[in-house]
Design a protein around this nucleic acid. Structure first.
Length: 556
RNA sequence: GGCCCGUUGGUCAAGUGGUUAAGACUCCGCCCUCUCACGGCGGCUUCAGGAGUUCGAAUCUCCUACGGGUCACCA
């Protein structure tokens, strides 16, 4: 067959040669060892939490090595495309501190290796597609719309549980052989009729033969050669992922292709395509998937529909982005936690990220661990930083509280400063959403009496204690003097001055000073638990403190 | 079903032929303590199974089991 003629028939408009395209995308001049990485999401308007993993790896590897990290938009499936999705992706990644050197930005493309949106690169793909036809490595497949619809219907077979895999394999094989047989006249006729074609690459592999390839995460892989023809261009002329991956990552001079391990099965296809195109193979890193537990207790990959799969949900839940970064890092590099314990003042950006420390197996998403990491991160922040985080969160998620909070910033910060700083900071919240319930009783508008006075104590004693407290409370007392007064009150109502005394001889007392503190606490905060009561009262002020005590007494 | 990947406590894991098999989270107990939150101490629970190599195996080899992923003109 005359492949040159076939190529011209198929791609009459393609005049450029691969060499001319290559010349537009020269090798990058970067320092020795610099890595060029990319993430290439589809603009579906959804960003998967798991997507943060490869994104973080790419970002760290590139920026740690003085390389380049870029964003490419893989909008080759128009059916799933959502308006404004590219801007959404950059925005959400920016929220997590992941910034690109190159690629699609809100202002347009940045960098000399663009365009970075695949739908704008169709001309480029066609140049290489034409070359493969000329080389006799690719052929057209004409299908009517009806046949395409049938194909799409077949896609649903994945949903059918009982697939006869053996029959399926034979049928696929036969169909493939049939597709490869055609005459020039047929092609001419199809084209004349205005029919569209998909372009397939002829597989030349022997699946009985295996070859070795090194994956930087998985190690040396032994995989069979590819014997399945690969779709390069769909009927609409748009490339598939496989073809676009080869062309783009080559031209954009990607050194490390970092992606989820679900791509491992198609690696033989990619290796074949790189060879057909004469491109040097990039280094591959297939990173393990994030898993969840299903109802049977089995691990399953965290899929789009699962709880917690949407990255943006973490913002809505009030997680601090830095905490999410930390958590991701602990899973990505097992020695990160240890390093961070030794370098508490540094951020993950100072951490020497290592490919060698990456796990080859998938891990379960653990919200408890995220919360713990998060509590530690928030506990190290200043009151002002927490304020900014909380107000930023409340602004969109709880506007009412936002108003309250920002009405008096100094007041809010004084609340948030309780127990903050120092070697053993309080760890009260895992998310910014936890802050409101923690501090709500400081605001009259949110103050509610949640916990009742202890039922096992004599109401008269409680009344006496509250009364005595109200009479003796002096806003100028220091903490010791304040607590001495509580002890005195305890004594006057027949309670032990010290908890220890009570514990030694519980029969001799009706209670202890802790109980008295508890009465006052419940009266003032409406709860059994609160941060340091002395501090709380200082912030509330004498008037409100006494007012709440009076109110509590009336309720007795 | 074929192919590929994986398997150290409930979770994340250190570990590369000789260790009392680290550490973190969770859970439980104790201590500290005016409650809570911290902090401190302690405990529960692990090398998937089998065979082999070796003086010696979590570490090397093979087999089995289990789990996961994938098999589109989606990415």
């Amino acid at each position: 067959m005359d492949y040159l003629k076939l190529a011209d028939m198929l791609f009459p408009d393609v005049k450029l040669t691969p060499e001319e395209i290559e010349a537009r995308y020269p090798e990058r001049t970067l320092p020795e060892g610099a890595k060029v990485t990319r993430i290439a999401p589809s603009p579906t308007g959804f960003f998967h939490f798991g997507g943060l993993f490869p994104a973080t790896v790419c970002e760290r590897l590139a920026h740690q090595s003085g390389g380049v990290f870029y964003l490419r938009i893989e909008d080759t499936d128009s059916k799933r495309e959502v308006e404004g999705a590219a801007a959404f992706i950059t925005k959400i990644l920016d929220y997590y501190g992941i910034r690109f050197d190159e690629g699609v930005t809100a202002e347009g493309d940045k960098g000399a290796y663009g365009p970075y949106t695949q739908s704008q690169r169709v001309d480029i793909y066609h140049v290489f597609a034409k070359k493969l036809v000329q080389d006799g490595k690719a052929y057209p497949v004409f299908s009517t719309d009806e046949e395409l619809d049938e194909l799409k219907a077949l896609d649903k077979k994945a949903e059918i549980k009982s697939v006869n895999w053996e029959e399926e394999a034979v049928a696929r094989r036969e169909a493939m052989i049939r597709r490869r047989e055609f005459t020039m006249e047929q092609v001419e006729a199809e084209l004349a009729a205005g029919h569209k074609f998909a372009l397939f690459a002829i597989a030349d592999g022997d699946p009985e033969k295996k070859f070795k390839i090194t994956d930087l995460v998985k190690g040396t892989l032994e995989i069979p050669e590819n014997d399945e023809d690969v779709v390069l261009l769909k009927s609409d002329g748009i490339p598939t992922y496989h073809f676009a991956h080869a062309v783009d990552d080559h031209l954009m001079r990607t050194t490390h292709v970092i992606r989820g391990e679900e791509w491992l099965p198609s690696l033989p296809k990619h290796v074949m395509l790189f060879r057909y195109l004469g491109f040097r193979l990039p280094k591959y890193m297939h990173i393990a998937q994030l898993m969840r537990l299903d109802e049977n207790g089995n691990k399953k990959k965290l899929s789009k529909r699962d709880m917690g799969a949407n990255l943006d949900d973490y913002r809505r839940m009030g997680y601090c982005p830095a905490a999410v970064n930390e958590y991701v890092m602990t899973l990505l590099n097992s020695n990160y936690e240890e390093w961070h314990a030794q370098n508490p003042e540094k951020t993950y950006l100072d951490f020497p990220f290592s490919i060698k420390k990456m796990s080859a197996s998938g891990c379960l998403f653990d919200i408890e661990k995220l919360n713990d990491v998060s509590k530690n991160v928030l506990s190290k922040m200043t009151a002002a930083e927490i304020f900014d985080g909380v107000s930023g969160f409340a602004k969109t998620e709880d506007p009412g509280f936002y108003e309250t909070l920002t009405a008096d910033r100094a007041y809010a910060e004084s609340i948030l400063a309780i127990g903050r700083g120092g070697a053993k900071p309080r760890k009260d919240f895992a998310t910014f959403a936890d802050v409101k319930p923690y501090m709500s009783f400081f605001y009259d508008g949110y103050f509610t009496r949640e916990d009742p006075m202890p039922q096992d104590k004599d109401k008269e004693d409680i009344k006496k204690a509250l009364d005595a407290f109200a009479k003796t409370y002096d806003g100028n007392d220091d903490q010791t003097a304040w607590f001495e007064k509580l002890k005195d009150i305890a004594e006057t109502i027949g309670y032990a001055r010290e908890t220890k005394l009570y514990k030694k001889a519980p029969d001799q007392y009706k209670g202890h000073v802790g109980d008295v503190a508890s009465f006052v606490r419940i009266a003032v905060t409406g709860r059994q638990n609160s941060p340091d009561l002395y501090e709380v009262m200082k912030i509330l002020g004498v008037k409100r403190t006494l007012g709440r005590i009076k109110e509590a007494e009336a309720l007795l």
